[in-house]
Design a protein around this nucleic acid. Structure first.
Lengths: 210, 210
DNA sequence: ACACTAAAAGAACGACCGGTCGGTCTTATT
DNA sequence: AATAAGACCGACCGGTCGTTCTTTTAGTGT
């Protein structure tokens, strides 16, 4: 198995550009981001970007997919090491808040920002964001359902309702923390922890305080 | 008391322009909004806008203040007709969700969108948004505190924690409803109603179902 | 009728936008 | 050694951005 050095170089560039695009997009918006700024921030030429993506929209779609890869790496995968059930649901929320609090991205949450930016802008970018959002909610629902099936959450729990609440508390955290007070992270942890403990058949599975 | 027709005309124009700016900003973003688009949508000239605001930033600030007036008119004031206490807190949330569900604005919630757009953009616009956000949270805290003092909410309720949860559930509703499913409004109502009923000394003050 | 004032339009500006083009350099194929 | 392919650049395109300057229009007071 030989590696084509040209292709490898291109792949490396694409990764670097997309990571830069994610960072810049959290600050300027996914659409507000200009190719000139991006190229300048990365020390490449604007036209060089078009060698890898044929339009700004294509670059936006690639950026979204790359951001999801990062999200899976830093949030989803670590959470999946927790045992199935209520502990995994808690881990998912806990990891998300931790990811925000680490401030790995300069402008908060890529998806939260993009979802609010594009929820009223028809087009393929909005559609892709909606699709990934649906997948994310399905993940939450699945993990919650497992907790119910394992008997760790009360059988009358509405997983859609619970999923909405967990998502809402998590989504708000970054913005609230950045615009008003970092205490938001504490509130976000406690809100979900208290809720899950209240719905648990064995609260001992969860930590006592956030 | 005589009215100068010229000034009255100017004031009317300002109101019309700001209302248009609010609507357009929910779709294109408060910064993404261009003066050309705004002028065209209103059937006025771009330069005419500068007769009333000296820069785009000034217009953005005026738009924010006008949006807050609308928010007070449609959400806060109606909610304040409810009796002090837990019913008023519920009314505040209920009115907010209703305002979203009415789809009075074409692009969702002006403040939610703007807060996510500007939370990483230093400047006077961000500062003004943060200030209004703080005031809004203070209103929630005050109404919740009244409910505790009246004995309608359990005395050990942390109003900051509760306020965060109410705000999170409300903030998420529009985006979730628009991007994924209008059921979000139902979840948003039930989440807060269940929470308030659970913390109430007399759940009979609140409706039984959302 | 006239001067005065505020509102609004028109034309133009430099800067920047997304995007195209011809070309160079590097690497792989034959 | 010749050829092809991919990565990347500088120059440039038409168009739009926020902003300014000049002019016209509409309404007020004498």
């Amino acid at each position: 198995m030989t590696v084509d050095g040209r292709m490898a170089r291109g792949a490396r560039t694409r990764r670097v550009v997309l990571d830069g695009a994610i960072r810049l997009a959290t600050e300027e918006g996914l659409d507000g981001l200009s190719l000139g700024h991006l190229a300048e921030a990365l020390g490449v030429s604007k036209s060089g970007l078009f060698a890898h993506w044929r339009s700004k929209e294509e670059l936006q779609l690639a950026t979204i997919d790359r951001a999801m890869e990062q999200w899976v790496t830093h949030v989803v995968s670590p959470a999946l090491t927790a045992p199935r059930g209520v502990r995994r649901l808690w881990a998912l929320h806990e990891r998300r808040i931790a990811f925000y609090a680490e401030e790995r991205l300069p402008g908060g949450c890529f998806f939260a920002n993009a979802d609010f930016e594009f929820n009223a802008r028809p087009g393929v970018v909005r559609d892709r964001l909606a699709e990934l959002f649906a997948q994310w909610m399905q993940l939450i629902h699945r993990v919650a359902t497992e907790a119910v099936e394992l008997g760790e959450l009360r059988p009358d729990v509405d997983v859609r309702q619970l999923g909405y609440e967990v998502e809402a508390v998590g989504l708000t955290a970054v913005m609230h923390a950045r615009l008003l007070s970092p205490e938001a992270y504490t509130y976000a942890r406690r809100a979900v922890l208290d809720r899950l403990r209240a719905l648990s058949s064995d609260p001992g599975l969860l930590p006592t305080a956030a």
